[in-house]
Simulated scan of single mutants.
Amino acid sequence: MKYGAPHIIDEGAVQYQLGVLKGNQVLYDFGKMLTYLDAKGKLLFGKKFKIYREDREIIYKLCLYFICDRERCSQHGIDIDKGILLSGPVGCGKTSLMKLMKHLVPHQRPYEVVPCRNIVFSFNHIGYKTIEDYGNTQFFCFDDLGVEPTGRHFGKDCNVMGEILLSRYDLFMNHKRKTHVSTNLNAQELEERYGERVRSRMRQLFNLVAFDKGSRDKRK
């Protein structure tokens, strides 16, 4: 990335211009962003990666969010001060998209994508320090929320991700630190898994961006 040019990204010998600078504003071009995301996706995930036409509406909303287009986000019911909860069926591409989108805005502080099951395994090994570690001021995207096992440390069960989400809520309210999540579960299933209190906090933490229930499994 060139200093002072957030809309120009260098990938090796290739330069991608995602829009034009007008005054102190970048006017992004969605077609150019798609071209870059497709190229970056192939670099990250291999040559078989592709952006499917039926996913463009989802990607468009995510692009608006990450480039902080407040006006257009508002038109789509997205609050750029909240995080993203990206939901959809297994294999629809949620994890890849969340890993990919942060590269669109290299001038912003990046978030780390962490599988929820790995967090629970860490809790099982080292205990409550894990919850403290993920309740800190870093930016995270918790991947595959809701399919992780119940945590158990020294014989005591703990809904690890539920506790972490409560900590992230406090962080959001006090320090405006955003959290992102990907999940296969719908709202009712999330409430059954984590309880009404956590579900209530999640409504304040996240914008819901959802793939269609019939989205294809791209891994097949």
Rank of each mutant, 00 (worst) to 15 (best):
T150P: 08
V147M: 14
E132G: 09
E54H: 04
Y52S: 14
R56W: 06
Y111K: 15
G46N: 10
H153D: 00
G155F: 00
Y16L: 08
R168S: 02
H103C: 11
G77Y: 09
D10M: 05
A187G: 00
D143W: 09
Y65P: 04
M98G: 14
P106T: 12
K102I: 12
C73R: 04
D170T: 13
P110H: 14
I126H: 03
P110E: 11
G12Y: 14
E11T: 04
N186K: 15
G146I: 10
P110F: 14
G77E: 04
N174F: 06
N118W: 03
L64D: 05
Y194L: 03
Y111G: 15
I8R: 08
K47V: 07
Q75L: 12
V147N: 12
F30I: 08
I131L: 15
E132Q: 10
L62P: 04
L18Y: 10
T137I: 09
V14H: 08
L97N: 07
S182I: 09
R152W: 02
L171G: 11
T95H: 02
T130H: 02
H107D: 15
H180W: 15
T183E: 03
G155Q: 09
N159C: 10
G151E: 14
K42Y: 15
L86I: 03
V198R: 00
S200M: 00
I80Q: 05
R56G: 00
T35M: 10
L165V: 01
R197K: 06
C141L: 14
V147K: 13
H153L: 01
F30L: 12
G151R: 02
Q108W: 15
Y52G: 05
S74V: 12
R117S: 06
G93I: 06
L145K: 06
Q25G: 04
K32F: 12
I80F: 11
K99M: 12
I164K: 00
L86W: 05
S87T: 13
Y169E: 00
F142L: 14
L27C: 15
T150N: 07
R203W: 05
K47D: 09
V20H: 03
E57P: 04
E189V: 02
G46I: 07
K220T: 09
L62W: 12
K50N: 14
L166E: 00
Q138C: 03
H7T: 07
F66D: 14
R72M: 15
A13W: 09
V209N: 00
P106G: 15
I78T: 01
G214D: 14
I51W: 11
Y16S: 10
G46M: 10
S122Y: 00
L62Y: 06
L145H: 03
D143F: 08
R56D: 08
K129P: 02
R53H: 05
T35S: 10
M161P: 06
R201S: 01
Y3T: 02
V181W: 03
G12I: 07
A5D: 14
L85V: 10
M33L: 12
F30M: 05
Q188I: 13
R177Q: 04
G12K: 02
C68P: 11
V113G: 11
L86A: 00
N124R: 07
I164S: 01
M101W: 09
P115Y: 14
M33R: 13
D38V: 02
R109W: 11
D79S: 05
N118T: 06
Y128S: 09
